[in-house]
Amino acid sequence: MQISTNNVPIFPLSVALFPEGVLSLRIFETRYLDMVSRCLKQNMPFGVNMIEDGHEVGDAAKCYAIGTLAKIINWDQSADGVLQIEALGCQRFSIVDSQVSDQQLRTASIKILEEPVGATIPAECSELITMLQRILNKHQPNNSLDETRFKDANWVSCRLTEVFPMENIMRQRLLEIDNPTERLEVILGLLSAH
Rank of each mutant, 00 (worst) to 15 (best):
L23G: 03
L25A: 03
E29W: 06
R31Q: 05
Y32K: 02
D34R: 12
M35V: 05
M35A: 05
V36W: 00
S37H: 10
R38H: 13
R38K: 10
R38E: 14
K41Q: 13
K41V: 09
Q42L: 13
N43K: 14
N43C: 11
N43H: 11
P45I: 03
P45M: 07
P45L: 03
G47Q: 01
N49G: 03
I51F: 02
E52F: 08
D53T: 13
E56T: 10
V57Y: 12
G58F: 04
D59A: 15
D59R: 12
A60N: 05
A60P: 03
A60F: 04
A61D: 02
K62R: 15
C63W: 00
A65P: 10
I66F: 03
I66S: 03
G67P: 00
L69D: 01
A70D: 02
I72T: 07
N74F: 06
W75A: 04
W75H: 14
D76Y: 12
D76H: 12
D76W: 06
Q77S: 13
Q77A: 08
D80V: 06
G81N: 07
G81V: 09
V82R: 13
Q84G: 07
Q84R: 14
Q84V: 07
Q84E: 09
E86H: 10
E86V: 04
A87H: 01
L88D: 03
G89Y: 00
R92Q: 05
F93K: 02
F93D: 01
F93N: 02
I95T: 04
S98G: 08
S98L: 01
S98R: 04
Q99L: 06
V100L: 08
D102A: 15
Q103T: 14
Q104C: 06
Q104K: 10
Q104V: 10
R106N: 05
R106K: 14
T107I: 10
A108D: 01
S109W: 03
S109E: 13
S109M: 08
I110N: 00
K111L: 09
I112T: 08
I112H: 08
E114L: 13
P116V: 07
P116K: 11
V117K: 14
V117T: 14
I121D: 00
P122V: 02
P122G: 06
P122N: 07
E124A: 07
C125D: 09
S126V: 07
E127Y: 11
L128Y: 02
L128I: 04
L128G: 00
I129M: 03
I129F: 02
T130K: 12
T130A: 12
Q133G: 08
I135N: 03
I135W: 01
K138E: 12
K138H: 12
Q140N: 15
P141Y: 14
P141N: 10
L145A: 10
L145C: 06
D146A: 10
T148Y: 14
R149Y: 13
F150V: 07
K151M: 11
D152H: 07
D152E: 13
A153Y: 00
N154A: 15
W155P: 01
